[in-house]
């Protein structure tokens, strides 16, 4: 490796570190740890954290429930309009979240056909906790679907053939062979979706508003706190940061975990 090459490489790494690392370091070191700890009991923070955890978990569950069949379809079948469906599914990843939130508002708002139908039943989605879940699911779904789809398509056809010659119906093959083999990918995809849902801001504030205790999740609370009490915003930011790092790290460290899981399973025949 030439010296010039090494210098270029070093500059790139340093540049990226400045761009990504410096802001994170700035947040993490802004307030002394003891003060941070004291801030963790702040009612606004606790309320927002509770809401964030509940809604992001619900959104992840919703995405897994609806995304799994779609991923299976995309991984195993070809059908007319497949490309279009793929583009549609990827769209939320590149769409500005505020646009997504606005679209949701137009679709489920009081004056939309769907909104009017729901109003007949006495239901209204916008500016409710349900709206938060829908906004998060809308934005975060592509992460789970693309990871799961890739995981399912990577399952070797030999195993599916073997299952078929061992009396396993297609449904049983999916349940006992495909899903277990694709499980690491699914878990990674679900974790990414959860992390993305946890950080969702734009679509939430547009579609669900900013009502403390109802729709004010952590990212929204950070934004509000920033205008009143910077240290409170820092405390919440550090907490969010720690959660995100925790999720990403657990994905990276997943393989040894699966080993443990496997050993636990192997004990019962």
């Amino acid at each position: 490796m030439g010296l010039g090459y090494r210098i270029l490489l070093g500059l790139a790494v340093a540049g990226l570190f400045l761009l990504l690392g410096l802001p994170l370091a700035a947040v993490a070191t802004r307030v002394p740890p003891a003060d941070l700890l004291a801030r963790m009991g702040d009612p606004m923070l606790v309320e927002a954290l509770r809401l964030s955890l509940v809604t992001s978990a619900a959104a992840t569950a919703l995405v897994v429930l609806l995304g799994l069949p779609v991923s299976y379809l995309l991984a195993t079948r070809s059908f007319p309009g497949k490309r279009l469906l793929e583009v549609l599914i990827d769209l939320p990843m590149v769409l500005p979240p505020t646009v997504a939130g606005f679209a949701l508002l137009l679709a489920f708002g009081r004056n939309s056909p769907a909104g009017r139908s729901l109003a007949v039943l006495g239901l209204s989605i916008p500016f409710t906790t349900l709206a938060v879940v829908l906004a998060q699911a809308f934005i975060a779904a592509p992460f789970f679907i693309s990871a799961t789809r890739a995981g399912l398509s990577e399952v070797d056809l030999r195993y599916l053939d073997a299952a078929a010659t061992l009396r396993a119906s297609p449904a049983r093959t999916l349940l006992r062979v495909m899903l277990p083999l694709a499980f690491p990918s699914m878990l990674a995809g679900a974790a990414m979706t959860w992390a993305r849902a946890l950080g969702e801001f734009g679509a939430t504030i547009t579609f669900a508003g900013n009502l403390p205790g109802v729709t004010q999740t952590m990212p929204l609370a950070v934004y509000v706190a920033l205008q009143q009490d910077v240290d409170a915003a820092v405390a919440m930011s550090v907490l969010l940061l720690a959660l995100s790092v925790g999720i990403l790290l657990s994905i990276r460290l997943a393989p040894p975990w699966f080993g443990l899981l496997d050993r636990a399973r192997a004990r019962r025949p």
Binding site: R158, Y159, D161, A162, T165
Partner: peptide, 18 residues
């Protein structure tokens, strides 16, 4: 295949790794 009364041993055995 799954409704046939056959046993099949593939060339590379295809034992389920999980």
């Amino acid at each position: 295949a799954w409704r046939r009364d056959v046993g099949y041993v593939a060339q590379d055995y295809a034992l389920f790794p999980h």
